[in-house]
């Protein structure tokens, strides 16, 4: 009995250690953002809002924020639309070359971001579309669509497969069935996909760095500050970005857990 208790205790402490490692940099950045030292160490320096004031008065940060937010919103809408179409196609149809079709939708995350960045930069500048305001949007949609597709596909898997057929038998057209059955049923997943893809786009730095040109986003600014010296401004920006992304992720998570449209699902 004591042996099992010891092993159980061992695993619990081990899990805690792993979580400490995962959380440590996030927490440290949060704490350092209020710390007066330029090179933080223990014991900590004084409490200060200096780094927040610095970024608040920095015009570059505000410009970057505007580009980040508008890109994230556009990306989330386009990627969720494409993701929905793809998820529905996978749910409903079988056709020749379907696995290649799905590979097209799901493979982008397996390509290293540096390579995606270089490929995007090369191709977009070849067709005269690099360094424009929409370049980041184009690239991020490619990266975000797989997430949107996965989230919505999981929701559609819960839809009772005879619900659609029942609506057709009652005389509804395919389009009307889409509008009255499929979309309402997928709505929680659609909204959570909007939030998650926006969060992914908001944080992405590598591809943006390659294709953005002068239209820098917040992560690109962070990357450029990093290339200089140690600068605690990054912690202040990071904390702000973290809170934004986490709000989006928590909203998405809550929506994924809701069980709307129970009558149509399998359970």
């Amino acid at each position: 009995m004591t042996a099992t208790r010891t092993t159980s205790l061992f695993f619990k402490s081990y899990i805690c250690l792993v979580f400490v490692f995962v959380v440590a940099p996030i927490l440290a950045s949060f704490i350092f953002s209020f710390n007066s030292d330029r090179f933080p160490t223990i014991p900590l320096g004084n409490f200060t809002l200096h780094w927040y004031k610095t970024i608040y008065h920095d015009k570059d940060v505000w410009d970057a924020l505007w580009i980040s937010v508008t890109s994230a919103i556009s990306v989330s809408i386009i990627a969720t639309f494409i993701g929905f179409c793809t998820a529905y196609t996978d749910y409903r149809y079988n056709f020749f070359g379907k696995s290649a079709y799905l590979a097209l939708a799901l493979l982008p995350p397996t390509i290293p971001l540096v390579i995606m960045g270089l490929a995007m930069l090369a191709w977009l500048s070849h067709i005269g579309m690099s360094g424009r305001w929409y370049s980041i949007i184009i690239a991020h949609v490619v990266l975000c669509t797989p997430f949107a597709m996965a989230i919505i596909r999981i929701r559609l898997a819960q839809l009772n497969s005879s619900a659609e057929a029942a609506a057709w038998n009652l005389g509804a057209s395919e389009w009307r069935t889409m509008g009255e059955i499929i979309i309402p049923f997928s709505l929680p997943a659609i909204i959570s996909s909007l939030c998650l893809t926006a969060a992914v786009s908001f944080d992405e730095f590598a591809v943006s760095w390659f294709v953005s040109g002068l239209n820098k986003t917040i992560p690109v600014i962070i990357l450029e500050v990093l290339q200089g010296q140690v600068d605690p401004q990054i912690n202040a920006i990071g904390t702000f970005v973290f809170l934004t992304s986490m709000t989006l992720v928590v909203i998405a998570q809550i929506l994924l857990m809701t069980r709307h449209g129970k009558g149509l699902s399998h359970e």
Partner: peptide, 15 residues
């Protein structure tokens, strides 16, 4: 996945 990887790396740099 949704916290900036860059910020976490910067944090490690300091730590």
């Amino acid at each position: 996945f949704f916290t900036s990887y860059l910020v976490r790396i910067y944090s490690w740099q300091v730590i």
